[in-house]
Nucleic acid binder design. Structure first.
Length: 204
DNA sequence: ACGAAGATGTCCT
DNA sequence: GGACATCTTCGTC
């Protein structure tokens, strides 16, 4: 899994399949490395919550490209969010990196996230990108080579699943995956205008 | 050209 | 649980 071809093959599958296997893997940029503890899958044109839902717009075009690249977008005008592109070129899907634990370069991460406790340095997609130093300029680059790098998990992680955070459409598709009980995982927040959550089984 | 919504984070009550 | 900052993106006119 260390060659470019091997990494590309790993990502050349549907995002919902890749996503849980990303838990425990490590993304690095410069001095900072983050071990992923929470991710979300987005399935492209078939997924109303995906930026690729309406086809290859300028912003979403990267997701229609080859796997193993990064898709970075600006959320609410201030937060960068980082995704890893899945599936072969022509098919769009991606995994949003929602949270992780800083395992290298923690001094630099503390500077970038001044005031945050260590467990929160990379908690939430905007904070993860900030701790890592990821900006839109990296969108379209691969996770191998000089800039970003990625290393597979050394052992499979147990994962919990649940609805994705902050999405209005397809609010209850269980494509969020996280390491159960890990303090670096972000809290669940439902979109204010999402359909009401389904009633729990047995509720009246 | 215009405007509404947004894969968020933080602070407030 | 709710408000709001902030500005890009994209659909619509």
């Amino acid at each position: 899994m260390t060659t470019a071809d091997g990494i590309a093959a790993f990502f050349a599958r549907p995002a919902w399949e890749v996503a849980p296997e990303l838990l425990g893997s490590i993304v690095s940029l410069g001095p900072v490395s983050v071990e992923l503890t929470e991710v979300e899958a987005y399935a492209g044109p078939r997924d109303p919550a995906s930026h690729a839902f309406r086809g290859p717009t300028p912003r979403a075009a990267v997701m229609f490209g080859p796997p193993g690249r990064v898709y970075v977008y600006l959320s609410h005008g201030m937060h960068h969010c980082m995704n890893l592109v899945c599936e072969p070129a022509g098919t769009a899907s991606a995994v949003l990196l929602r949270a992780g634990r800083v395992v290298a370069g923690i001094d630099e991460a503390r500077v970038r996230r001044a005031g945050a406790p260590d467990v929160a340095l990379a908690r939430g997609p905007g904070n993860l990108a900030r701790a890592l130093g990821v900006t839109r300029e990296l969108s379209g680059t691969t996770v191998w080579g000089d800039g970003l790098s990625w290393r597979a998990a050394t052992a499979p992680q147990t994962s919990s699943t649940g609805p994705r955070v902050g999405v209005r459409a397809a609010a209850d598709v269980s494509w969020r995956f996280w390491v159960p009980g890990d303090p670096t995982v972000s809290p669940y927040r439902r979109h204010a205008k999402a359909d009401p959550a389904p009633a729990p089984e047995g509720a009246s």
